[in-house]
Design a protein around this nucleic acid. Sequence first.
DNA 1: TTCGAGCGTATTGGATCCAAAAGGGGCCGG
DNA 2: CCGGCCCCTTTTGGATCCAATACGCTCGAA
Lengths: 242, 242
Amino acid sequence: MSLETTKADEIALVLEEAIVSGELEPGRVLRQEELSERFDVSRTPIREALRRLAALGLVSFVPNRGFRVRTITVSELREAFLVRAELESLATEIAAPKFTAAELEELESAEQSFSKATQALRARPREGVDRWRLTHDWVVANHGFHDVIYRVAESPLIERLAKSARRSFSGHAVWAPGGSETDALYERNDFEHKAIIAALRAGNPAGARTLAREHVMHSFELLSHVLERLGSGERHLRVERG
Amino acid sequence: MSLETTKADEIALVLEEAIVSGELEPGRVLRQEELSERFDVSRTPIREALRRLAALGLVSFVPNRGFRVRTITVSELREAFLVRAELESLATEIAAPKFTAAELEELESAEQSFSKATQALRARPREGVDRWRLTHDWVVANHGFHDVIYRVAESPLIERLAKSARRSFSGHAVWAPGGSETDALYERNDFEHKAIIAALRAGNPAGARTLAREHVMHSFELLSHVLERLGSGERHLRVERG
DNA sequence: TTCGAGCGTATTGGATCCAAAAGGGGCCGG
DNA sequence: CCGGCCCCTTTTGGATCCAATACGCTCGAA
């Protein structure tokens, strides 16, 4: 562990990762005693960590009844994407004039990983664990691309809020079914990344901004499409109606 | 106190109010013992409340050294306004088609209070406690106007994040000096509120959105202007250079 | 059968207690 | 006079303990 940190903070980070990755599925009750055994500490730092996660919106809290991993409704999902669209387009605009050649290469490289993940998803439209894992890889690669932009933008508040909006649903990740329609949406996503890179290379902040905004909203379309195809009654779908 | 709530939550709300209002000035160290006496509880709920405020970004925290009310730099201030501009314009666009006649009246009424506060500020350009209080009233009236829009938008996430961005600097409120230039900026702010109302009445979401965005950025100009006139070395200015 | 009351258990909220780290001041040597 | 070291005090981090609330089960009555 790092030199200067409290147990509550370390635990909060581990729990956050577990929630975002889906290891702790939405709706799951977080028992203080159970966590205190898992991390081999008393309940005191556990509760502080949970308070932090509650303030971040990752877990919900009801007095005297405890904490649980937050579930999300469809309307909350839409709102999160709207917010991310605004913040990310803003970050892209800010980052645009700051991009160095090296950073553009980094972005390009991240995009190549993303392309590969997209193609992998397309090539193996089977369901099951395999498909789930490919989807997860795709999500990670996607984040990798966007994170380069956040980093270049050097806007901590924007980054924090945008990632917070992103986190609010990433724990709900599901395997995505294949199909030509779905595939087309995945392809479009990939294409839009390339378009954003092009606008950045061209030194066009306003264009990059618009592209980024549309891209995020298209990502929402993609996710909606996937949810639609899965049907909200399915077990692997952890988003509630709303 | 409400039926279902923990002491930690109540305390967090009170502290939040104290910080936002400036009663607890930026940079102030928050001793756990002192707070536990003030609220007549043990340090346990105090620490949970402080953890929450830290996650919200209202206080900073260093392990083994404690919590203090967060200070803000000029670049953080700019970023907060950029974020608020995006989120508030989004909220305005969403709210636009939802406004009922009654809600428009409410907005109109809030704007009238704001106009009065603006005129009061202009009429009494003297410095001192008096001026400080008028500025505070102006801030409250301004929030009152914008809060109507948030409420109509019915977008809890947007509202939460936008208010969070707002909070990040409202504890730094200072008295604003008078002067014809400054007065012109205050007038413009007031005028822009009216323009937003007009766009909403006209059923023009896109227009309202654009106006809202410009309005928030103009508010930043106003604040910058005030800060400029005060000079960053002044005691009543609690924003750091950055 | 079903619904509600009662009671024992599980779980949370908060107080208290102890250990560890930071802060402050005096003392000593340069 | 100044800087570093040591010791004492303050403050924080965490563990443990106790009270209060919620949960779940059984049992009895309609």
